[in-house]
Nucleic acid binder design. Structure first.
Lengths: 189, 189
DNA sequence: ATACCTAACTAACAAACGTTAGTTTTGTTT
DNA sequence: AAACAAAACTAACGTTTGTTAGTTAGGTAT
């Protein structure tokens, strides 16, 4: 992870602490200690603790949104789109697991417009995902089960993959993608 | 939810707040307000904020442990055991979603022996689950894929079911069990 | 040298935190 | 009516919280 500005460095260190203990349990003094400086010095680079959370979550949410837009524009089948979405989540898990943890666990600590904007983006993302599933069902490519159950079972696995990916010795990404697609789409029986 | 003692009532109200904002973001004054009393009054019934978390998480962890023990003792196939485990998780989701949220999100805020004891119970639970999967593979009842990937995809879905169950209008439990078993075991394709 | 910017520092603030001590209210039992 | 236990209260404590203000050290450009 190459870091260019002092601000980005702070946000990165903070994200690691957020991942471990959650936003509310991490203090500005914790973050400062990780940087080897005093808490007050952080404010030469960032506006507030809240700004750190906001940058982490909203930037990542935009990545998901643009990833979805990109995949939707492809001329491939619904099932292939779902495969691409699985790969998108895995790439993000591998490269930005700390921000992903914040997005998953601490989004409710965003304030005002940031909170509203995040919720909107998430609803929008799920809506597009659901439509791909529905289309897959309508052309007989996906089993005619409640789309909501399918959407949820895929998303909940992908969203919490970061918890598990680190624990089990960081296996090969391409292998992981293959296995994940197989298990999520074709089941285990 | 029938509540018998004042202490249980406090723990229940606290669990609802923990589910919304997480343990660290909830103050004793928040809990007191929910009870219609002052924060200091809580201490007539509980020892500490930490005790609330400990009761919530460890009691539920014991439910999982005893549920697993019960299912393991049944004279049924590995696949049927997994079905029973899925049903166990769904029952707990429906009846104790608040405690489940605490167990999922705030276990790391347990202290000392409680933390150690929780981690041990969780590792033990996963170990038994994994063994059932492995046995299913060895007798050809489950596809010969990495057991870890199967375990994770099932568990991550079941563990976060509480987030989704409330949102989508509390559908019938038996229907949910049937759909969940179908999607998790037989896939969507 | 001068000025200037970056990034650290010390010191402090007001608010919020979990918790304790001691007291009063409330409702039930004798 | 007196006694008792349960459960509330007020007041306060020592810490920790996010944050601000003003200052200082180190490097770069004029």
């Amino acid at each position: 992870m190459k870091i260019y500005s002092r601000k980005a460095e702070i946000i990165f260190q903070a994200s690691q602490l957020f991942k471990e203990k959650g936003y509310s349990a991490v203090t500005m003094r914790d973050i400062a200690q990780e940087m080897g400086i005093k808490a007050a010095s952080l404010y030469n680079h960032i506006k507030s603790k809240q700004e750190i959370l906001s940058v982490l979550i909203l930037d990542l949410a935009k990545d998901f949104t643009s990833g979805m837009k990109n995949i939707e524009g492809m001329k491939i089948s619904p099932l292939q789109k779902i495969e691409k979405l699985i790969e998108l989540h895995i790439d993000i898990t591998v490269n930005q697991s700390e921000a992903l943890a914040a997005l998953n666990n601490d989004w409710m600590h965003l304030e005002e417009e940031d909170l509203a904007s995040f919720i909107k983006m998430r609803e929008n993302y799920e809506e597009h995902f659901r439509n791909i599933i529905k289309e897959g069902i309508s052309i007989g490519q996906i089993q005619p089960r409640h789309p909501e159950v399918i959407l949820f079972s895929i998303l909940s696995t992908l969203r919490t993959l970061y918890l598990w990916y680190q624990k089990r010795g960081k296996l090969d990404v391409n292998l992981l993608k293959r296995d994940m697609v197989a298990v999520l789409l074709r089941g285990i029986v």
